[in-house]
Write a protein that binds this DNA or RNA. Structure first.
Lengths: 231, 231
DNA sequence: TCCGGAGTTTGTTTCAGAGCAACGTTCGGT
DNA sequence: ACCGAACGTTGCTCTGAAACAAACTCCGGA
């Protein structure tokens, strides 16, 4: 294992208040690993024995019903902690994490969690803030799912992807990792058929531009309108 | 304000490890208040200046969409902490709490939160455990909402109410606080019409027995079957 | 180079459940 | 004892989106 560079963490919120030497400690306890697209980092129900920080790539966090249906609960972008079950006194992961693109993550054994929270200033604060945001996000999604029609839900989902991972390009804002129609259907609780129809229609209207596994939003404002957040 | 008795808290998880004198301290800082049915304890978006413990009654935790639709995110039963935004570094409440029946709650100013977590053994642990359970619960609801048909969702909602607040009576298990068809529709993202039809049908089948604002489940096993959790 | 699978598109059919409407019932207030 | 509001029931209509079906395109591997 090559020695990890301190600059990896020094700007990330949970670690940004730490001394150089403390970051060194954190890194010395970390395991770094690469995950290919489609690989699971951990699975729902398994022993929560490590917690993670995503350095590069993108993750889907997924839940599966007894009936085998899946839904995507949220996405993780670089710089975010994930799999932080120990923060919530859980001994088992509540969901599955899958690499949506080739990804790199650090991880630590849960036994270090309490050391981190007590010894490293700002770490606990930032972790709980993340959790709070995530809880709020999921409540939003739930509310949306319960009250909005499919078209609005898909528009919202697309906007969320754009906000989290959007990259400005020539023709608009591009979603920075592979997304299939099926993925979007699992974010919105609909079928890939319906998503495909919607994207086709929007493409005809010049709102999005999509090829397989790849979406560019060319008219974000019109998508905002469709999402019903205003108007 | 009458002096509060220590036995109020001594058996509740967040305080169960405390010395008698510590419980005394906690109570001396607490404000106790009664809320009539339908009253809001706090509202979404308002400054999160206090955190709470429900002593008696039942609460609905509610979110409102820009469009004015409401959904019930979860219910709170006696003995549970709620409004614990400070635990998640939020300065504003993410949802509204409303008394579903006449209720009594203690509250403390958020400034005491960090004192509580550092001075009282088990308090932080239990709080975060509650949060973890709640996060899991909401993820469950979300998944259910995204994948299950209305009938199953309503069956699940009813079962959840029964599990959280059910009281055994002569004819079955009774939901211990007033619930309207409308409430259930806001838990399940459907209309009160559909809920009414379902309850009528189930009553005909001898699964439930309901009068206005009051539901008794007479055949829980058949409801479990309908909910699709097994079979 | 061909093949197979994953991802996507599009057409057609079907139906659960929303929307609308009207009426019945219970309750609390005066 | 009456009134009005909140709560609940039921019938009917109509549509959004699921289900079913069939092809097409792209990609990687043998």
């Amino acid at each position: 294992m090559p020695k990890l560079d301190e600059s990896l963490l020094s700007d990330l919120p949970p670690f940004s208040l730490l001394e150089r030497s403390q970051i060194r400690e954190v890194l010395d306890h970390a395991v770094s690993r690469r995950y290919e697209e489609g690989t699971a980092i951990f699975r729902e129900g398994h022993d929560a024995d490590r917690f993670y920080m995503l350095l590069d790539g993108y993750l889907r966090v997924v839940r599966t019903t007894p009936g085998g249906d899946q839904i995507i609960v949220l996405h993780i972008s670089p710089g975010q902690l994930f799999g932080i079950a120990p923060a919530l006194q859980r001994d088992t992961y509540p969901a599955t994490s899958i690499a949506a693109a080739e990804s790199i993550a650090l991880s630590w054994p849960v036994s270090l969690w309490s050391d981190f929270t007590t010894n490293y200033p700002g770490f606990a604060t930032e972790s709980y803030k993340t959790l709070g945001q995530r809880l709020g996000q999921i409540q939003d999604t739930l509310t949306e799912m319960a009250t909005q029609a499919v078209e609005k839900r898909v528009a919202c989902a697309l906007l969320r992807l754009v906000n989290q991972t959007g990259r400005k390009t020539e023709g608009g804002i591009e979603i920075a990792f592979p997304v299939t129609r099926h993925d979007i259907s699992e974010m919105t609780g609909t079928t890939l058929h319906t998503v495909s129809r919607l994207l086709s229609a929007w493409q005809k209207d010049g709102i999005v531009q999509s090829t397989r596994k790849h979406i560019v939003v060319t008219a974000p404002h019109r998508l905002v309108f469709l999402s019903g957040i205003e108007g």
